[in-house]
Simulated scan of single mutants.
Amino acid sequence: METAFFKTPLGTAKIVGDENGIAIISVQDEGESSTMIPEVLQECVMQLESYFEGKRNDFSIKLNPKGTDFQQKVWKALVEIPYGKTRTYLEQSKVLGDVKAIRAVASANGKNPLWIVVPCHRVIGTDGSLTGYAGGLWRKKWLLEHENLNAQQRLF
């Protein structure tokens, strides 16, 4: 597995992957950018940079996250939430076919290893509150505002 670090408006992103796909994208408050980005990670870095520049709203990189079958199912459903939109945990549970699975869905969201690319930041509380985000609620708020701002700008 190869690893690269690069600066984003929300901290330093860490990307881990190989020829089978990207396994981890995480964020940390501090860290230096890599001086060399391994070839297998370059497309991921470019797509994330485009996202932060407001030029990209979906990703076409090969993913290879590690998780249980249920987690994989939850993460796949997260990718289907449109850019600039949100779903509640209840709505996400319904999409997955079990309204009683709200806590399990929330737990799987919290274990999402692919920051931004698998958009768990788009899942909110039933009352519209920003709940449960491993990267910090301030990052979730920033990401949702970033996506809504770009969605509004495309209208004009």
Rank of each mutant, 00 (worst) to 15 (best):
residue 1 M to L: 11
residue 2 E to R: 09
residue 5 F to E: 02
residue 5 F to C: 04
residue 6 F to H: 05
residue 8 T to H: 02
residue 12 T to R: 06
residue 12 T to V: 12
residue 14 K to H: 03
residue 16 V to W: 02
residue 17 G to P: 05
residue 18 D to K: 09
residue 20 N to L: 13
residue 20 N to V: 00
residue 21 G to H: 14
residue 21 G to D: 06
residue 22 I to S: 03
residue 22 I to G: 01
residue 23 A to S: 12
residue 23 A to N: 05
residue 25 I to F: 06
residue 26 S to P: 00
residue 26 S to T: 15
residue 27 V to C: 11
residue 27 V to P: 00
residue 27 V to M: 13
residue 32 E to L: 08
residue 33 S to Y: 13
residue 34 S to Y: 03
residue 34 S to P: 10
residue 36 M to F: 14
residue 36 M to R: 15
residue 40 V to P: 04
residue 41 L to D: 02
residue 46 M to C: 08
residue 48 L to S: 05
residue 49 E to M: 10
residue 50 S to R: 11
residue 50 S to V: 03
residue 52 F to C: 14
residue 52 F to Y: 15
residue 52 F to G: 10
residue 52 F to N: 14
residue 53 E to K: 14
residue 55 K to M: 08
residue 58 D to C: 08
residue 63 L to T: 11
residue 64 N to C: 11
residue 65 P to C: 12
residue 65 P to F: 15
residue 66 K to T: 02
residue 67 G to M: 05
residue 67 G to I: 01
residue 72 Q to E: 11
residue 73 K to M: 13
residue 74 V to S: 06
residue 76 K to D: 14
residue 76 K to N: 12
residue 77 A to Y: 12
residue 78 L to K: 08
residue 80 E to D: 09
residue 80 E to V: 01
residue 80 E to F: 06
residue 82 P to L: 02
residue 82 P to V: 01
residue 86 T to R: 13
residue 90 L to W: 05
residue 92 Q to E: 14
residue 95 V to N: 06
residue 96 L to E: 10
residue 100 K to T: 12
residue 103 R to Y: 10
residue 103 R to D: 09
residue 103 R to F: 12
residue 104 A to P: 05
residue 104 A to Y: 03
residue 104 A to F: 01
residue 104 A to D: 11
residue 106 A to V: 00
residue 107 S to E: 12
residue 110 G to T: 00
residue 110 G to V: 00
residue 115 W to N: 02
residue 115 W to M: 07
residue 115 W to G: 02
residue 117 V to S: 04
residue 118 V to K: 03
residue 118 V to M: 10
residue 119 P to H: 03
residue 119 P to K: 00
residue 120 C to A: 15
residue 121 H to I: 00
residue 121 H to E: 07
residue 123 V to N: 08
residue 124 I to T: 01
residue 126 T to E: 15
residue 128 G to C: 10
residue 129 S to E: 07
residue 130 L to R: 01
residue 131 T to N: 09
residue 131 T to V: 15
residue 133 Y to V: 00
residue 135 G to R: 09
residue 135 G to W: 13
residue 138 W to M: 09
residue 140 K to H: 05
residue 146 H to P: 06
residue 147 E to Y: 02
residue 152 Q to L: 14
residue 153 Q to Y: 08
residue 154 R to S: 15
residue 154 R to W: 12
residue 154 R to I: 11
residue 155 L to T: 15
residue 156 F to C: 07
